[in-house]
Simulated scan of single mutants.
Amino acid sequence: MSTDEAARYRLDDCLGGHSPTIHQRALRRIYGEKVAVDIIAGLKKNPVVAVPVVLRRLKAKEEEWREAQKGFNKQWREQNEKYYLKSLDHQGITFKQNDLKAVRSKSLFNEVEAAYAARRPAPHLTVHYELKDRNEAIKILRDCAELLIHHARRQTLYKRPRKEELSSF
């Protein structure tokens, strides 16, 4: 702009932007409520003189805020590192209680029972025999009974009288 045009140039309420509040609010944050009113009036009245002054102040404030932000970022990072593990502890009590419940024998037994009920297992082994006579059937049943008796004798859970009782059965 020429000197004559610059002297006649005036800013409106929007201060060269689209919204009157954005720029004015920024100036109020930088200069404070009382001084900002005078600065805004100066920008509207004589922008050639006021704009360079405001621009220097804005650049200085930006540098100041960037430095402050670097310091805050360092503090925030340290605090995040310091309290991160503690932030996870708010659920520790719940997990501990749930783990205790899950590890109890009753819970484990119920879980095994539920799995068993869901599977409804068939016999481990199914063998079909074509028997020619009754003696073969008796021989097979006797072999099965001997296997069961052998298994009962090897159990450490039962005492001798109980094992004999199972064998006689």
Score class of each variant (00 low, 15 high):
Gln75Val: 13
Ala122Tyr: 03
Gln24Phe: 00
Leu100Ala: 15
Trp65Met: 15
Ile93Val: 12
Ala114Phe: 07
Gln79Arg: 12
Arg56Cys: 14
Glu113Lys: 02
Leu58Val: 11
Val127Pro: 05
Ala41Glu: 15
Lys74Tyr: 03
Glu81Val: 02
Lys96Ile: 14
Thr94Gln: 12
Asp133Tyr: 02
Ile40Ser: 11
Thr126Cys: 04
Lys45Asn: 14
Ala115Met: 07
Ala117Val: 09
Leu125Met: 10
Arg56His: 03
Ala115Ser: 13
Val112Trp: 00
Ala118Arg: 01
Lys70Gly: 13
Val48Ile: 08
Gly71Gln: 09
Lys96Tyr: 13
Trp65Leu: 14
Leu108His: 03
His124Phe: 11
Lys106Met: 10
Lys59His: 04
Ser87Cys: 02
Thr126Asn: 06
Glu64Asp: 04
Ala36Ser: 12
Lys82Leu: 15
Val37Arg: 06
Asn110Lys: 08
Ala68Tyr: 06
Ile93Arg: 14
Val103Gln: 11
Ser107Asp: 02
Glu130Thr: 15
Thr21Glu: 13
Ala26Pro: 04
Ser105His: 06
Val51Ser: 05
Tyr31Asp: 12
His124Asp: 15
Arg119His: 10
Asn73Arg: 06
Lys132Met: 07
Leu27His: 00
Ala102Cys: 07
Gln69Glu: 13
Asp38Tyr: 03
Thr126Ile: 14
Leu55Tyr: 03
His90Leu: 11
Asn80Asp: 12
Leu85Gly: 05
Gln79Thr: 04
Asp133Trp: 00
Gln97Gly: 10
Tyr116Gly: 03
Val103Met: 05
Tyr84Ile: 13
Glu63Gln: 05
Ala102Val: 07
Lys59Phe: 01
Asn73Glu: 09
Tyr116Glu: 14
Arg119Trp: 06
Gly92Cys: 08
Ala68Pro: 02
Trp76Ser: 13
Gln69Val: 11
Ala60Asp: 13
Ala122Ser: 09
Tyr116Trp: 12
Lys59Trp: 00
Lys96Asn: 14
Glu81Phe: 01
Ile93Ser: 14
Trp65His: 09
Lys82Trp: 04
Phe72Leu: 14
Thr21Arg: 03
Leu125Ser: 06
Tyr129Ser: 06
Ala41Met: 04
Lys86Val: 11
Pro52Trp: 01
Gln97Thr: 12
Ala50Trp: 02
Ala36Thr: 05
Lys74Ile: 08
Asn110His: 05
Gln91Thr: 14
Ala118Lys: 02
Ile39Val: 15
His90Gln: 14
Glu67Lys: 02
Arg104Gly: 09
Tyr84Arg: 13
Ala117Gly: 00
Arg29Gln: 10
Leu43Asp: 11
Gly32His: 01
Gly71Phe: 00
Glu62Pro: 04
Pro123Lys: 09
Glu130Ala: 09
Ala117Met: 12
Leu108Asn: 07
Arg28Thr: 15
Leu43Cys: 07
Lys45Pro: 01
Arg56Met: 04
Val51His: 00
Val51Trp: 00
Leu85Cys: 07
Lys61Cys: 08
Pro123Trp: 11
Ser105Glu: 15
Gln79Leu: 12
Arg134Ala: 13
Arg120Ser: 13
Ile40Lys: 02
Glu62Asn: 09
Val51Ala: 09
Arg29Tyr: 01
His124Arg: 13
Trp76Met: 10
Leu88His: 06
Val35Ile: 10
Tyr84Gly: 05
His23Pro: 10
Asn73Leu: 04
Lys86Thr: 13
Ala36Arg: 00
Lys70Asp: 15
Asp133Thr: 11
Tyr31Glu: 11
Ser87Trp: 12
Asn73Phe: 01
Val103Trp: 08
Lys44Phe: 01
Val53Phe: 00
Gln24Trp: 02
Glu63Pro: 00
Tyr84Asn: 08
Arg29Cys: 08
Glu62Arg: 05
